[in-house]
Computed example of a mutant assay.
Amino acid sequence: MNKNFYKIMSVVVILFFSYTKFQTVNASSELSISSEVMEGDYATEAYAYEIKQQDILKFLESVARHHDVDEGEFEYSSIPEVSMDRYSYFSESSNDSVQVSQVENSLAYGYTRNNGYMFYDIQNVIKENNLDITTDDELGFATKDEIQQEVENLIHSLGIELEYAINIQSVTAEEVNNLLDEYFNLEANNEEISRFVTDLYMVSVNFSIDGIPINSFAMGDYEAGVVAEDTVFQLTFTENGLENADLRGYNAVGEKQKEINLDSQEIISLIENKYANIIILNETQLTSLELVNLHLLGSKTSEESELYIPVWLGIIEQEVDGVTYPTYVFIDAETKKELTLF
Rank of each mutant, 00 (worst) to 15 (best):
V176E: 02
S18L: 13
Q318I: 07
S208E: 05
D121S: 15
T135S: 13
E73I: 07
Y183M: 11
K21H: 12
E128A: 15
S35H: 09
A46R: 04
R248M: 12
I214G: 04
V63T: 11
Q265Y: 08
D137E: 14
F5T: 13
E30C: 06
N273H: 00
E174R: 09
M9C: 10
V125D: 01
Q265F: 07
T172Y: 08
T24N: 10
N26Q: 13
D132F: 12
N185C: 03
E266T: 09
I51R: 01
I193L: 03
L154K: 04
S97T: 14
N277Y: 01
I279S: 05
Y325L: 11
E174L: 06
H156E: 04
Y222E: 05
T340E: 15
E319R: 14
G314P: 02
Y87S: 09
D121P: 02
V253T: 14
E243Q: 15
E272K: 15
I122L: 13
Q149T: 00
I160S: 03
D41G: 01
V37T: 03
Q123E: 08
L294M: 08
Y308V: 10
S101V: 08
V197G: 11
I316Q: 10
F141S: 00
A48Y: 00
E39K: 14
D136F: 09
G140F: 07
M1K: 02
E71C: 11
V197E: 03
Q54F: 12
A142R: 02
F74T: 08
G225N: 03
D321W: 00
T24D: 15
N2R: 05
S101H: 10
I278G: 06
D321A: 09
I279Y: 07
K21W: 13
E39M: 15
V205F: 03
A276S: 13
S91P: 02
L186H: 07
F141Q: 06
V98N: 01
E50V: 05
T20L: 06
L179E: 05
E182A: 11
E229M: 12
R195E: 03
T301W: 08
Y222I: 14
N261R: 00
D136L: 04
A142D: 06
D55C: 06
E50R: 05
F233M: 15
S32I: 02
L247E: 06
Y325G: 01
I8P: 00
L262S: 03
Y201W: 05
G225F: 10
E152Q: 12
Q318S: 13
I268P: 00
H156V: 03
Y42T: 01
Q169L: 13
E259L: 10
V323W: 10
H66V: 00
T301Q: 01
D70K: 15
T327W: 09
E266P: 02
E73D: 13
N115S: 10
D132A: 14
A228M: 10
E191W: 12
N215F: 01
F196V: 10
K144E: 15
L180G: 04
E334K: 04
V292F: 01
V323S: 11
D199H: 03
L131K: 07
F237I: 06
L162T: 11
F17H: 07
S28I: 09
R86T: 08
I133T: 08
K144L: 04
A276M: 03
M9K: 14
A333K: 00
Q102F: 14
N178C: 10
I315W: 00
V203N: 01
I147P: 00
